[in-house]
Design a protein around this nucleic acid. Structure first.
Lengths: 188, 188
DNA sequence: TCAAACAAACCGTCTGGTCGGTACAGAAAC
DNA sequence: GTTTCTGTACCGACCAGACGGTTTGTTTGA
């Protein structure tokens, strides 16, 4: 794969991501992606031979970025649970920090990706299942899972913009989650 | 509105719900709904003049049923937070109990409803915002919000089928959440 | 010069919505 | 008491646009 090809592919993924963010998946048409990326539809389909292939690529890139951040946090010395909390804190709990406006519809759109691409959803599920199994072997599995669930719920809430608490309360929640995570990580 | 009309409308909502459950929203076509309900497409559009109107009606009915259950739990004497936990426990955390198979795609589909119908999403958001504001005035707002988030996250996890813990752990989590809710409700 | 990297017209299908009609129950008119 | 009228409930053929994907043609860089 040449360098030129790679640049175009990244442009296409960026374009698709932008469209999903701004307008939702139901507006993600091949024509629109091609137009936004400054490429013709034929060019798009040359690199991603179907819409599903494009969606898969989007999610794949997203997941890879996430994994890298998690591993880097662990290398910084955070325990597995605390690293998980901090991963969310840095990337998923503050949509207002993001340069791109993210609201309910956009978050839903990303979730919907998985509905569209069943094959990928299955792979994604297997990965996550394996990951969360380690969460059931900490010093306090129930508490660990509650932290995990809370983070996921909070992420949804923030991105949907539904029942979002004031900033101080939000910070208090995160702080408390970090404390508990730390506690779990340090116990035997 | 006559009784006959009402019966047909309910049949249509049932059909639409079934289709979403079984196949996902992207398979929810007017023709399919009409066929499932044993009505013609014209008949469907007579009662719900657009697809959006149909989706709105689905969500509206869903929300109403939920409100009624929550209020009945409170009448049974459970505090607001505990009633909230039990609401989830009874209706949202055990997809395997449901007579209808619910998996990732199906849950996503329901969520996607809100993406499709922006107008309704706004109304829904306002209602929930008001509700969760009361959650920020309990004896321990941070803890209350963590419980809420955990329930929402757990619901997602269960319906997506991602990282689902074994039954005992699941029960332990719910038990712990109820205990904490009870504690919050009984403190001043 | 040859293959990779695009462009753009074109096709078939799917689907939301329209529209002209039908059936029928009751009210109105006579 | 029959006829006419009217509104509700429903049918199903049809249309127009959107969209994924194909095909065929063109450019470009090594």
């Amino acid at each position: 794969m040449s360098n030129r090809s790679n640049v175009t592919k990244q442009k296409l993924l960026d374009a698709a991501t932008t469209i999903i963010m701004d307008n939702g998946v139901h507006q993600l048409t091949l024509d629109e992606v091609a137009k936004t990326a400054g490429v013709s539809k034929g060019g798009l389909l040359y690199h991603y031979p179907s819409k599903e292939a494009l969606l898969t690529a989007i999610v794949e890139r997203l997941q890879q970025e996430e994994n890298e951040l998690y591993e880097s946090l662990q290398r910084e010395g955070f325990g597995p649970v605390e690293a998980f909390v901090r991963l969310f804190d840095e990337t998923k709990l503050h949509p207002e920090r993001s340069p791109i406006q993210i609201d309910a519809e956009k978050m839903i759109s990303f979730i919907t990706l998985f509905a569209v691409d069943q094959e990928y959803a299955a792979r994604w599920k297997r990965d996550l299942d394996a990951f969360f199994e380690t969460f059931q072997k900490t010093s306090d599995p129930a508490e660990t899972m509650i932290i995990r669930y809370a983070l996921e719920g909070m992420m949804m809430s923030e991105h949907f913009g539904v029942g979002v608490p004031p900033a101080e309360l939000k910070q208090a929640i995160i702080t408390r989650l970090i404390e508990r995570a730390k506690h779990i990580d340090t116990k035997p």
